[in-house]
Design a protein around this nucleic acid. Structure first.
Length: 237
DNA sequence: CACCAGGCCGTGC
DNA sequence: GCACGGCATGGT
């Protein structure tokens, strides 16, 4: 699920664990998630990704290549607050370091669900955490952004009901959230499928293969098409 | 020692 | 509006 989530840790012999929903989940593959109501929603198991993949592949030759190379992709439905903090941490950062910050925040400010397994902190658990505290964990220049996000976290539930443009504007009122981070939050937590994050890689794809076009070309599969193109350009580069 | 990591903010034009 | 430098931190 490269870059969508930082909640999962690979343990020995191919078992992945995550502390979510006040539980510790351990799975090997998606079959282990089928009979759990929370994970069914989390992994979006009731959406027809096979059909979406076929329709995306039929759109043009570039997407056909991308789908062929990448295979089935799905889009997670993560907790709003966890996703918001995670993607603020992601800016100008790398996956390994983001995962480290995620785990240190959990261990320091979350609570222990099983011995050695800590939940990601809630907005209440973070409400008195200072810029200096975040810096001490290695959050760097993102520290004040986290303070602002926690202060405004109550609005995250309202974003669910908003149309796409209003949702973008609401998230971008938090310091440190620009168009790219807001799009990621809307896709990977609110499942707003119009999201189309433009990072350096996607700008390269658009300039090279889709000059003069914008995200509307990919409707109604903007988000999933973007995921395919992003994964593809990184694999072939 | 440089340069980079799925950007964003503040400033200057 | 748009281009630019700066930004904390840890890894190559």
């Amino acid at each position: 699920m490269g870059g969508q989530t930082f909640s999962w840790t690979e343990e020995a012999d191919g078992v992945f664990s995550a502390t979510l929903n006040e539980k510790v989940y351990r799975i090997r593959d998606l079959k282990d998630a089928e009979n759990d109501e929370y994970l069914r929603s989390y992994f979006d198991l009731d959406y027809d990704y096979e059909k979406a993949m076929r329709e995306i592949a039929a759109k043009d030759e570039v997407l056909r290549s991308a789908v062929e190379k990448i295979g089935l992709l799905r889009i997670l439905k993560q907790d709003h607050f966890i996703a918001t903090i995670s993607f603020i941490l992601s800016q100008n950062n790398n996956i390994k370091r983001i995962k480290g910050l995620y785990d240190r925040l959990s261990r320091k400010y979350g609570h222990e669900v099983e011995p050695g397994y800590f939940s990601f902190p809630t907005k209440d658990e973070l409400k008195d955490v200072s810029i200096e505290d975040y810096r001490a964990l290695g959050c760097g220049f993102r520290a004040p952004f986290l303070v602002d996000a926690v202060a405004k976290a109550d609005m995250l539930d309202d974003v669910e009901k908003m149309d796409f443009d209003s949702a973008m504007a609401a998230l971008m009122s938090i310091k440190g959230i620009g168009p790219k981070v807001a799009s990621c939050i809307l896709i990977f937590s609110y499942q707003k499928r119009e999201g189309f994050p433009m990072d350096v890689w996607m700008k390269k794809v658009m300039n090279t293969y889709y000059p003069g076009k914008d995200k509307s070309y990919f409707s109604p599969y903007e988000a999933l098409s973007q995921q395919y193109l992003f994964s593809w350009i990184r694999e072939i580069s």
